[in-house]
């Protein structure tokens, strides 16, 4: 039940924050959000890290690898994009 409450409240926070993201940043928003959804990595760490259940461990290890691609790749590529969004001074005019 608490989980459901957290889910709904997080959705409200999300709407509140994300609707104000300008169109110009929608691609970095997607790739950044993608990296955040790699949070499954945490779940993968728990399942991969356990002894005694080989199937769970290997499924978890595979999940961990895939989720890490998402996390590392997602944050890095978002940073690469955001680095490019700069405000440049206008070039000097001839007249």
């Amino acid at each position: 039940m608490e989980n459901l409450i957290i889910f709904v409240l997080a959705a409200f926070i999300g709407v509140e924050i994300l609707t104000k993201v300008p169109q110009t940043l929608h691609t970095p928003l997607m790739s950044g959000a993608n990296a955040i959804s790699g949070i499954t990595m945490v779940g993968a760490l728990v399942t991969a890290g356990m002894v005694g259940t080989p199937v769970a461990k290997w499924l978890g290890a595979l999940a961990l690898m895939v989720a890490t691609i998402n996390v590392v790749g997602g944050f890095l590529v978002t940073d690469r994009m955001l680095k490019m969004f700069t405000r440049k001074p206008r070039p000097p005019r001839d007249d």
Binding site: L45, V46, A48, G49, M50, V51, K57, W58, A61, L62, L64, M65, V66, A67, T68, I69, N70, V71, V72, G73, G74, L76, V77, R80
Partner: peptide
């Protein structure tokens, strides 16, 4: 969580992280 089998996990993280970094 005192996770017990670090070898597989380190391998998975390094491989995954490497692929992610190269892609990015």
């Amino acid at each position: 969580y005192e996770i017990l089998t670090p070898v597989e996990m380190i391998a998975a993280t390094v491989v995954g992280g490497g692929i992610g970094a190269v892609l990015a």
